[in-house]
Design a protein around this nucleic acid. Structure first.
Lengths: 254, 254
DNA sequence: ATAAACCTTTGCGTAACGTTAATGTCAACA
DNA sequence: TGTTGACATTAACGTTACGCAAAGGTTTAT
């Protein structure tokens, strides 16, 4: 049984280019070459090609396949085990991806529902306008237009459920923070829990979280009198305490 | 807030090369270029980059991202839904891959256990030698060395459980075939079931199944007197009947 | 003044082929 | 015997999303 490139390609269900490429990179050389320069493949090559395709189907790179086939003492099982780990890791990543995409779709669908609910829409719009009036200019100057606008958009896009969840987190954060303040230890368990809740609350409004930004906001609570004033109304010294807790939480306390 | 390439890169957590590449392919152009040719990015570009990175994290290609961002009327949700389907398909493929790899590993482990079981080993070796003596030369001539050797290797690598399962399938196939033979209809339900069982039995010995090869084996049962003799002992005309059933089963009956 | 740390463009390299171009070969049919 | 169509060959560029290096200009700090 001898095959020319195309015959072998059809037999194996790959393109003739693939066959020639495998010759080119030296993992499947023809049994012989006839007088016209045609590649002629025999039974041994068919067998070899099937092995190559087997590994290829498993997602092993041709480079690795070459090594597998070159060395007789190659531990194929160990390689496969390693490869399986890679595949599992890939699937984990894929799962995260899928859930993110689904969340995004759901959020978008939520937004559609939301635009229908005009009352809630108006409410949030008013809330944004109020925010803009109060802190808009300064925040824009400090953090740039894009941060403010994104925050606003984020708020616009929030569904009622999300909004309520955010408020709940925030009040929980304040309760925890007040309890923590009594202990006077910003590195303590309660204070760190408050810092974590603060992070959670921030994540309702931020597209991406970073330690630096979190620490920055905490510092802002101290630097900006409006925020400080708000915190002072709850408890004098609370803004600084939260800042210290967050700076420890984020590891930015050096 | 203005950023140079490296500043923006650090902000976004990507390389400066990536930023320049995005300029090159036109999905993120700098706000302006200063007198020294430095790229300067403003708030709008930061925002745009974050959008790009968002889609990129979802595994969307830059080409598609470009289209998403170019057209205002682009239906982002529909695109994401489509993308989700692709991701799910990818995960299905990955799952198949993983289970195949795991099966392969298990089979290999089985082989290791098997080599320990010397009795069974010897038994199978004898079986292979017998097969070789009986049909080896002819089969090699007809189907090539690689097919025979692969079949032998397959048999060698079979665990006892697999071997018993294969024998069980074979006897079931014969029972069904004899029943079907009574009906005289190779296209009938019973005969087709026998053909399917025959395929299952073959798959214990073959690395890859193809209709052509299956039909070829069925034809061999008729052409080769040794096989015919075997079938005749069970029931005269059985080999031809099986061949007809298999040819119908594989769609090779034209 | 000088060095370090930036910035720029240009261009090659990656994996596994797909695609095109220009040309040669083979089997079959009129 | 000539022609046609299906094959074969090599060579070379294109693909993705950048990494890396070279060669040189700019900015900033000491």
């Amino acid at each position: 049984m001898e095959y020319t490139v195309q015959a072998l390609a059809r037999l194996a269900g790959v393109s003739s280019r693939t066959i020639r490429y495998y010759d080119e990179i030296g993992i499947l050389k023809p049994a012989r070459v006839n007088s016209s320069g045609y590649r002629i493949y025999g039974p041994a090559e068919v067998d070899r090609l099937q092995q190559i395709l087997f590994y290829r189907e498993l997602g092993v790179s041709l480079d690795v396949i070459r090594e597998i086939m070159l060395s007789d003492d190659y531990d194929g099982i160990a390689a496969l085990r390693e490869h399986r780990e890679k595949l599992l890791e890939k699937r984990r990543q894929l799962d995260v991806l899928i859930s993110t995409v689904e969340k995004t779709i759901k959020a978008s669908e939520g937004r559609i529902v939301m635009t229908d609910k005009e009352k809630f829409e108006g409410f949030k719009k008013k809330l944004i306008e109020e925010n803009e009036k109060k802190y808009g200019r300064e925040a824009r100057e400090k953090y740039g237009d894009e941060a403010v606008e994104k925050s606003n958009r984020k708020l616009m896009n929030m569904t009622q459920e999300q909004y309520e969840a955010a408020e709940k987190i925030q009040s929980e954060m304040f309760e925890t923070l007040k309890e923590a303040f009594k202990t006077g230890d910003p590195a303590g368990e309660l204070a760190q829990k408050a810092a974590d809740l603060h992070r959670q609350w921030l994540c309702f409004f931020w597209d991406s979280y970073s330690k630096e930004a979190h620490a920055g906001v905490a510092q802002m609570y101290v630097d900006d009198e409006r925020f400080t004033a708000y915190y002072v109304r709850v408890q004098p010294g609370l803004a600084k305490f939260l800042r210290d807790a967050v700076h420890i939480y984020t590891g930015m306390n050096k």
